[in-house]
């Protein structure tokens, strides 16, 4: 009894040691490896952009595919975001009798924040999962190996077109989202807050700066890069058949969505 009590603190510290080791080998190290891998995929994709002209048909195909898949969802979500935003902000403005400035607030919030973030999150689910599942299936069925053996670099053959396509599609859909969101905001302004079209637009023209739009576009561009690189890098790490493809697909969506928000914060903070 006495003896056991004496070594209890030791056991406690040994326990901490074990946990730290488990944390290190089980989480920190794999996370670092994964980040390193994703960064190398990113760098190699950027380097192979010089082949973009030769791959223009594949790139256009990916743009069309991602764009058409994303457009309906992005537009619907943006529309309702605009409605909700206008209603929430408007109800507060009403208390101060300032509802006439609703146009500027909706437009700035949409362009800087809601437009890119909503679009980014939708694409992280839609396109991130698609890319991870597609590339992952190719990985586990030896298609990637086959490319390597034929001296065809899988990064420039498969990843770069997807990467570049998302760099185009994400900002593009964000433009649609912004327009639709602002239009949705107007419906609420008109119907509930009694703000007319001219007043709505005048506020936007006065207060919406080019900077608000470009920051939003920059965010969208960064989200497009993140989503495609995370999706493709996860796909390239797929192992063990269907199970592995499912696993990396889930991870691509989770990591993609989280990183969209994390980078949203950093970019917003940087340009505060």
């Amino acid at each position: 009894m006495e003896k056991e009590r004496a070594i209890l603190p030791l056991r406690f510290f040994a326990g901490i040691g074990d946990r730290v080791t488990t944390l290190w080998t089980g989480m920190v190290k794999p996370a670092m490896e994964e980040t390193g891998f994703a960064l190398s995929v990113f760098v190699n994709s950027v380097l192979s952009l010089r082949l973009a002209f030769r791959k223009r048909r594949e790139i256009m195909y990916q743009v069309a595919l991602c764009g058409l898949n994303g457009l309906p969802v992005a537009v619907i979500v943006a529309f309702f975001s605009g409605l909700v935003l206008s209603l929430q902000v408007g109800s507060q403005l009403l208390r101060f009798g300032q509802q006439s400035s609703i146009g500027a607030l909706v437009a700035i919030s949409m362009c800087r924040e809601m437009g890119p973030v909503m679009t980014g999150n939708i694409l992280a689910g839609l396109i991130g999962s698609k890319m991870a599942a597609e590339i992952g299936t190719m990985k586990v069925s030896e298609e990637i190996d086959a490319l390597e053996v034929m001296s065809i670099n899988p990064i420039s053959f498969l990843i770069m077109p997807r990467f570049l396509a998302m760099c185009i599609v994400c900002p593009l859909l964000t433009v649609y989202a912004n327009v639709v969101g602002v239009a949705g905001g107007f419906l609420v302004a008109k119907g509930i807050l009694n703000v007319g079209w001219q007043a709505y637009m005048k506020e936007i023209n006065t207060y919406l700066m080019l900077k608000d739009v470009t920051i939003g576009m920059l965010k969208a561009l960064i989200f497009g890069m993140i989503i495609s690189i995370v999706g493709c890098a996860q796909g390239l790490r797929a192992e063990h058949g269907a199970y592995g493809v499912g696993r990396v697909t889930m991870r691509a969506v989770v990591i993609g969505s989280v990183f969209v928000l994390v980078f949203d914060w950093f970019v917003g903070w940087f340009f505060f």
Binding site: M138, E142, E143, A146, E148, V149, M150, I152, F157
Partner: peptide, 29 residues
């Protein structure tokens, strides 16, 4: 690897391309 030809155990064809495109791939690239 340019000097190698490799026949995979189960073919390892690219499933997104047709048979003809698969065979043409090394020449196209």
């Amino acid at each position: 690897r340019m000097g190698f030809g490799f026949l995979f155990q189960d073919g390892a064809l690219l499933n997104s391309l047709t048979v003809g495109e698969n065979v043409a791939l090394p020449l196209r690239e």
